[in-house]
Deep mutational scan, measured.
Amino acid sequence: MSIQHFRVALIPFFAAFCLPVFAHPETLVKVKDAEDQLGARVGYIELDLNSGKILESFRPEERFPMMSTFKVLLCGAVLSRVDAGQEQLGRRIHYSQNDLVEYSPVTEKHLTDGMTVRELCSAAITMSDNTAANLLLTTIGGPKELTAFLHNMGDHVTRLDRWEPELNEAIPNDERDTTMPAAMATTLRKLLTGELLTLASRQQLIDWMEADKVAGPLLRSALPAGWFIADKSGAGERGSRGIIAALGPDGKPSRIVVIYTTGSQATMDERNRQIAEIGASLIKHW
């Protein structure tokens, strides 16, 4: 067993022997301040990774656009098919120029040779490549099948209805392509620590998230040296922004954090800054 596999296998073990965790309302004060600064709703939840206990939450059962955070769930569904012998990570998928959609920095470079399922998941999570996500959605049967996968996990809230990039439209009061912070946090925890996926697939999923290259201005910008984070960000229309993450000190994750916002007129930089400040408060009061 590799060191990384050992780390993920012992996530519940280490967490069980940690000192009790206590909620700190100071972080919620910052979440509410972010709402004021952005002029928009902000949803927040913080779960203990081992027990699933909610440590703090704000608007945990209000719907927010998922945006690209759905790509972690998508690759979880792909990995479940791999575990069941219905898919192979090494299978190569070929596609054409007509398949390319807006923001496809990886797939646009491989029109000639195609990409493997493993490479597509890596591109979808680490670079948020939209064509990679659409190609992977095709392998599982489309958005409705991802929703069905989530329902089978016990998540009857999260739903995907459309493809990239239309799913980022974020129309107010439109339930399409949305989740709730509580539902997303619980589902992410199941994917990373539950028995739904094999140990190898859980490790692969967290490795992809740990290698995320496009979430630097968010929670990662607030992390002290030595902290662990595996995350996936999302951005959408109407001032929408979000991030889902597993993080913790001492090089291992111990909490799940989900943050979503929508309806702001603020710039992307300002949305990023507010999420980073929430992260800084979380870490300060850990």
Rank of each mutant, 00 (worst) to 15 (best):
S2T: 13
F13P: 07
F14W: 07
A16S: 15
A16I: 10
H24N: 15
P25F: 08
K30N: 07
L38D: 06
G39D: 12
G39Q: 11
A40V: 06
G43Y: 00
I45L: 12
E46C: 07
N50V: 11
S51I: 04
K53T: 15
I54N: 06
I54P: 15
L55F: 10
L55D: 04
F58N: 15
R59A: 06
P60G: 15
S68F: 00
T69P: 04
F70G: 07
L73V: 12
G76H: 02
L79V: 06
L79M: 11
S80Y: 15
A84M: 10
G85I: 04
Q86D: 13
E87G: 05
L89I: 07
I93F: 06
Y95T: 03
Y95C: 03
D99L: 09
L100T: 07
T107I: 05
T112G: 13
R118F: 13
S122T: 09
I125W: 00
T126I: 09
M127L: 11
N134K: 04
N134C: 04
L135R: 04
L135K: 05
L136M: 07
L136A: 06
L137R: 01
T139P: 04
I140C: 06
I140V: 09
L150H: 04
M153V: 11
M153W: 15
D155H: 01
V157K: 15
R159Y: 06
L160T: 10
L160G: 04
D161A: 06
E164K: 01
P165H: 06
L167T: 08
N168L: 05
I171Y: 14
P172I: 12
N173Y: 12
D174W: 02
D177H: 01
T179R: 00
A183M: 10
A185L: 02
A185C: 07
T186K: 13
T187R: 01
R189Y: 15
L191V: 09
L191G: 02
L192E: 02
T193D: 09
G194K: 09
E195N: 15
E195G: 14
L196A: 15
L196S: 15
L196Y: 15
S201R: 06
S201E: 02
S201T: 08
Q203C: 02
Q204P: 02
I206A: 14
I206F: 13
I206P: 01
D207C: 10
D207A: 15
A211C: 13
V214A: 08
A215R: 04
A215P: 05
G216Q: 13
P217V: 09
R220H: 04
L223H: 03
G226H: 11
G226E: 10
W227H: 02
D231E: 04
K232H: 00
G239R: 02
S240N: 07
S240W: 01
I243E: 03
I244A: 07
A246T: 11
A246R: 02
L247D: 00
G251S: 11
K252S: 13
I259K: 00
A266I: 06
T267N: 12
M268R: 07
D269C: 11
E270H: 10
R271G: 08
R273Y: 12
A276G: 10
A276S: 14
S281R: 13
K284D: 14
